[in-house]
Lab assay of single mutants.
Amino acid sequence: LADDRTLLMAGVSHDLRTPLTRIRLATEMMSEQDGYLAESINKDIEECNAIIEQFIDYLR
């Protein structure tokens, strides 16, 4: 059971955070005209990261 939990934490961490990191990188490359959009996307990314952290904390 502990091994399954560790594997799940690693999978969640990698499989969800990697795309979020790519999205954040894309927002950094957006033009200044789209700053409001990038800010909104980054806020959503932070919310997703917080949910992931809560899930990982729960698994521990």
Rank of each mutant, 00 (worst) to 15 (best):
L1I: 13
Y36K: 11
D15N: 00
T27V: 13
E39T: 10
N49F: 15
T27R: 06
L25D: 04
T6M: 13
M30E: 11
D44P: 07
D44L: 07
H14C: 01
Q54A: 09
V12M: 14
N42K: 00
K43Q: 14
Q33S: 05
D3M: 10
T27W: 02
A38C: 13
D3Q: 05
I51G: 03
A38V: 00
R24A: 08
D44Q: 01
L1F: 13
D15R: 00
L20V: 14
V12D: 06
D34C: 08
D15G: 03
L16H: 15
G35S: 06
D4P: 13
D34W: 02
E39W: 08
A2Y: 13
G11I: 15
A50N: 00
Y58H: 14
T27H: 12
I56W: 05
E46G: 09
S40V: 02
L37Y: 06
V12L: 10
T27S: 13
E28F: 15
G35Y: 10
A2N: 14
N42H: 09
E32T: 06
M30S: 07
N42R: 05
A50S: 09
I41P: 03
M9Q: 12
E47D: 12
Y36E: 09
I45Q: 09
D57K: 10
A2Q: 13
L20K: 08
I51W: 14
Y36L: 08
M9K: 11
E39Y: 04
I23S: 00
G11A: 14
E28I: 10
N49I: 02
E46M: 03
P19L: 12
L37K: 10
A38M: 05
R24C: 08
R5V: 11
L59D: 15
L16T: 07
S13A: 11
Q33E: 06
E28N: 07
T27I: 13
P19V: 10
R24I: 12
I52Y: 06
E47R: 00
Y58F: 11
I56K: 14
Y58Q: 06
K43M: 04
C48V: 09
A26W: 01
M9I: 10
R24Q: 10
A50L: 02
E53W: 15
V12G: 03
E53S: 14
Q33M: 04
G11K: 09
D15L: 03
E28S: 10
S40K: 15
D15K: 00
I51R: 11
E46L: 05
S13F: 08
M9P: 12
T21G: 12
M9F: 03
L7S: 04
D3A: 04
I51E: 12
I23V: 02
L16A: 13
G35I: 07
L20H: 13
T27F: 12
H14Q: 00
N49H: 07
D57W: 02
E32G: 07
K43G: 06
Q33Y: 14
N49D: 14
P19T: 11
N42A: 15
R5P: 09
I41E: 15
T27G: 11
L25E: 15
E53Q: 11
A26L: 15
I23F: 02
T21E: 15
L7T: 05
I51L: 15
L59R: 15
G11N: 05
P19Q: 11
S31P: 12
S13L: 12
I23E: 02
D34G: 14
L8G: 15
L8Y: 03
Q33N: 05
A50E: 06
H14T: 01
L1H: 10
S31T: 06
L59H: 10
D44G: 14
N42T: 03
T18E: 15
L20Q: 00
L20C: 03
I52P: 13
K43F: 15
A10P: 00
Q54I: 11
L7M: 04
V12C: 05
L8T: 05
L7V: 10
T21P: 14
L59I: 13
T21L: 08
T6H: 04
R24S: 04
Y36T: 03
Y36G: 15
N42S: 00
L59A: 10
I23M: 00
Q54M: 11
E28A: 07
L25C: 03
R17V: 03
I56T: 12
N49T: 05
A10W: 00
R22M: 03
A50T: 03
E32D: 05
R24T: 05
D4R: 11
F55L: 12
L59S: 10
H14N: 01
G35L: 06
G35E: 07
D34V: 11
L25Q: 01
E39L: 14
A50K: 00
T6A: 00
I52N: 07
S31D: 06
T21Q: 01
M29R: 01
M9R: 02
I51M: 06
L20N: 02
I56P: 06
D34I: 08
H14S: 00
L25T: 10
L25I: 03
N42F: 07
T27N: 10
V12W: 14
A50V: 14
A26M: 01
R5G: 07
D15E: 03
Y36D: 04
R22I: 13
T27A: 03
C48W: 13
Q54E: 04
T6N: 03
M29N: 13
E47T: 02
I41K: 01
E39C: 07
I56R: 00
I45W: 10
Q33T: 07
L37F: 15
R17C: 10
T18R: 08
D15V: 00
Q54C: 04
Q54T: 04
E47K: 08
T6S: 15
S13M: 08
L7E: 14
L16K: 14
L20S: 08
I45C: 00
D57N: 04
H14D: 02
D15I: 15
T27D: 14
L59Y: 12
I56L: 04
E46F: 13
D4A: 12
P19G: 00
C48A: 03
S13H: 03
R24G: 07
M9D: 13
I56H: 12
S31M: 07
S31Y: 07
P19S: 01
P19I: 07
D4Q: 11
E53H: 02
D34Q: 12
L7F: 13
E47C: 02
L16M: 02
L37C: 03
E46N: 14
S13E: 09
I56G: 14
L7G: 05
R22A: 04
L20G: 09
T21Y: 02
K43R: 10
E53F: 15
M9L: 04
G35V: 06
E46Q: 05
N42C: 10
I45N: 06
L1M: 12
L37R: 14
Y36C: 04
K43D: 02
N42V: 11
R17Y: 00
A38F: 03
E47W: 03
A26Y: 05
D57F: 06
L59G: 13
G11M: 14
D4M: 15
I51K: 00
L20P: 06
M29D: 04
I56A: 12
D15W: 00
Y36M: 11
D15Y: 02
T6Y: 02
R22K: 02
A50Y: 15
M9N: 12
C48D: 01
Y36F: 15
E46H: 11
D57L: 08
E32A: 06
N49E: 14
L8R: 11
A50D: 05
S13I: 11
D4L: 11
R22P: 12
D4Y: 10
Q54N: 11
S13P: 12
H14L: 01
A10T: 00
M30T: 12
D15F: 01
D44R: 04
L16V: 10
A26K: 12
A38Q: 00
E46S: 00
L20W: 14
R24H: 01
E46Y: 12
T18H: 03
V12S: 00
D3T: 05
L25W: 03
A50P: 12
V12K: 11
R24W: 15
F55Q: 06
Q54S: 11
T18L: 09
T27Y: 10
F55V: 05
D3Y: 09
K43C: 13
S13V: 09
L25F: 08
V12Y: 03
A50M: 04
T6D: 04
I52A: 15
E32M: 08
T27M: 02
A26S: 14
E53P: 01
L37N: 10
L1C: 12
Q33D: 05
T21C: 04
Q33P: 06
T18Y: 02
D34A: 09
T6I: 14
T6V: 09
Y58L: 04
D57T: 07
I41N: 06
S13Y: 01
V12R: 03
R17H: 10
D57I: 12
A26C: 14
